[in-house]
Amino acid sequence: MMAIRELKVCLLGDTGVGKSSIVCRFVQDHFDHNISPTIGASFMTKTVPCGNELHKFLIWDTAGQERFHSLAPMYYRGSAAAVIVYDITKQDSFHTLKKWVKELKEHGPENIVMAIAGNKCDLSDIREVPMKDAKEYAESIGAIVVETSAKNAVNIEELFQGIMIRTVCSSSLASWCWLCRRLLVSSELAAGLGHAAVPAVLGGVCLHRDSRL
């Protein structure tokens, strides 16, 4: 029996950016009948194999409305990672995202892995937030960044794979290199992410080949 490592992930972001759609997509694609479904979409779990461990994502959705903002600390406490979602067609949501990042830095758990998801990338023709902005911002705060489409299932898997790697690695490595962030969006990683694959892909550039992955 493989060990199960629980990974609490908190979803933050404005209301209507598609937080729960992302999770639903992630959880419900490749639906595993062995896993008892949760009672609602606010809290979902998904177990993903990683190396010789199983990682169980416990995904906590939060209410994005301003009036619930103050409850957020209860949700992100003890999280290993936070997915902060914005809508690429709404500049406002990107602003909110920055507020969340700030709050997490101040009050969030130490070493929380932050992942920025620019959702609705299927609507890139009405995009308001340039991808470059997001990338630069993410780099500046050392976060994972990826543009997703919950509707078309784009990069959803990658997003969570990235979180998984980051959380596993961050537990054994102090820092994370830029390369790894790029890795997250690479399809090879999404495909395999096996024990052997990681060092090969990294080609010795990154320290984390020595990590437990």
Binding site: S21, V23, G40, A41, D61
Partner: peptide, 24 residues
Amino acid sequence: VCKLIYTVMENNSGRLYGADDFLP
């Protein structure tokens, strides 16, 4: 109780509601 609330919310619509809708 939460399950019951979800059932009412979803009302057979098949839509899944996240915390944005559930918490209120």
